[in-house]
Amino acid sequence: MMKMKTRPVEVLRRGHMACPGCGLSLGMRMVLRAMGPKMVGVVVPSCVAVTSGPFPYTALGVPAFHSAFEIAAPTAAGIAAALKEQGKEDIPVLAFAGDGGTFDIGLQSLSGAADRNENFIYVCMDNEAYMNTGIQVSSATPRYTWTGTSPTGNPRRKKQIMEIMAAHRMPYAATASIAFPEDLTRKIQKAKAMRGTRFIHMLSPCTTGWKIGEDMAVKVAMLSVETNVFPLYEIENGLSYTITYSSRNLPVEKYLMAQGRYQHLQPDQIQAIQAETDRAWVDLQGRAAKRKEEL
């Protein structure tokens, strides 16, 4: 007999303030749906807060706090600790922050909270630049990428946030993509069942900043995974790596050329990105293999 599936409860409501076709708001919707309505949300200045809506409207169907830019992690930690004191430890706290709020200005407070293993889930919605202030370069912006403050292409490479988080030996860290909703949902639900600091890194295609069509966010997210630019994996206790999706190893050019922000790239730059991606992919596979040996 076929199992009846109930329609999931949508926690992110209609009428949110994101741009049409926004990859980030789709990611928020998937994360919140996987969490369910019994949770407390933290948002900080970023497109996440824009999506959440201005007073008196809110797209978030859960109690939530619009905190300050660089304190998503200690905000979540403070609420979680207060809920514990009130005997409500069963209510999970989940913080959303952008890449700027995570890789840059919020890195210290996130590191502090992860080091103390505070009890919350942290979801970094990485659109690879400061987007709601109008597309400025961040340390999550990949090499050669156009932004408003790297008009000839970003000279620096993207900061490896997953390696930084893994170095905290935190219980759980995973990458997730809106193009792979089952994988995303499983990871959120796995994180929800755990305690301590849990980190989700989600690549969130931005129609405006990446110069892609309103119907392209999911496709570009899919290409980021299939080209190994953004592999899907998880890290337990900072050491055990598991690749959760075997990609089709497509050339990075397919991913890059789908986006307006890379149209200026020269062939040698594309080659350099390919080489860097291959190196990182081999490295990741090595880490995952090491884990298999140990098992």
Binding site: E70, P74, T75, G78, A82, E85, Q108, G112
Partner: peptide, 18 residues
């Protein structure tokens, strides 16, 4: 890890009612 975070924790916990 900093006074900035100390106040972030305190203000959030206070809003939660602690």
């Amino acid at each position: 890890e900093s006074e900035h975070s100390a106040m972030a924790v305190c203000l959030s916990a206070s809003l939660a009612g602690a």
